[in-house]
């Protein structure tokens, strides 16, 4: 292609520099991942007979599910209202508990032992999937919405307290010091120096959390914690696939609507 013979006689080489420069590390990671993947897949107990049988079952489920059956609209509505009630109460309860826990878990406000306690509470609340919490509460307080409310309260604390604590750690200390210098008491400082700064975030978080709790309440019901999830589980257990599909469709619709509303409100406030 080139007529210029005075430069290099042999064509120069170029290779893209590898993503990880160290070849040992590169190949080690690659081989390690390949071995893991191969091993992980072999541990899967594939039962092909069961799977092929499952295809027929799938056909039967879907056949039974169409068309969705909205005949028991009353039951559906009742389940939904219960989910909504669970979501509202657990959001309020969760928010109320989140505020003190967030102050406990803010390094710039709380002394070290209290800070650690606050952090541990948040970590524990965040680590457990709400369904696990729900199953424990169902065992402790019985089937029904109480277990759902308690579960989602903990779920709310895990998220809201964490975000709020982070916000408190970022507040502008100038305002707090200005108040302190006028000789104000601690709680008044919190009320006028800290709360106004975290309030917008708090409202946004609350709406977001209400939306999440509504979604989650559909799930924790599956293990017996009340709401639409329990209705769905019952329908599934009784092989009422057409009613189960109807419930699922309504859940999807409600989630989409609630997501749109919460997004709208948060855009206006945040």
């Amino acid at each position: 292609m080139s007529s210029n013979t005075t430069t290099a006689t042999t064509p120069r080489q170029w290779r893209k520099a590898p993503f990880i420069a160290n070849p040992w590390l590169r190949w080690g990671l690659l081989i390690g991942f390949a071995i893991y993947a191969a091993w992980a897949i072999t541990t899967l107990p594939f039962d092909w007979a069961r799977i092929s049988e499952g295809m027929e079952r799938a056909a039967r489920i879907f056949g039974g599910a169409f068309p969705p059956n909205f005949d028991r609209g009353g039951l559906l509505l009742k389940g939904f209202l219960e989910s909504l009630q669970i979501a509202i109460l657990s959001t309020l309860l969760g928010l109320a508990l989140s505020v003190p826990i967030a102050f406990m878990a803010a390094r710039n406000i709380a002394p070290l032992p209290i800070y650690l306690l606050g952090r541990i509470l948040i970590i524990v609340a965040r680590s457990f999937h709400p369904v696990i919490v729900a199953i424990l509460f169902v065992k402790a307080v019985g089937f029904g919405p109480v277990a759902g409310i308690l579960t989602l309260t903990i779920y709310s604390i895990g998220f809201v307290a964490k975000m709020l604590a982070e916000r408190i750690e970022e507040i502008d200390w100038g305002q707090v010091e200005a108040l302190r210098s006028t000789g104000t008491g601690t709680f008044t400082v919190l009320q006028f120096g800290v709360l106004p700064q975290i309030m917008p975030r708090q409202i946004g978080l609350s709406i977001y959390q209400l939306d999440s709790n509504l979604r989650a309440s559909a799930v924790v019901g599956i293990v017996g914690a009340g709401g639409i999830g329990s209705t769905l589980m019952n329908a599934f257990g009784r092989y009422d696939y057409d009613f189960a599909l109807a419930i699922t469709l309504v859940i999807i619709a409600v989630i989409l609507v609630s997501e749109a509303i919460s997004g709208r409100i948060r855009k206006n406030i945040w």
Partner: peptide, 14 residues
């Protein structure tokens, strides 16, 4: 829009 657990219910049935 369908939660993992609801998907799981379906696939356990299948």
């Amino acid at each position: 829009s369908v939660n993992t657990l609801i998907w799981a219910l379906l696939f356990v049935a299948i």
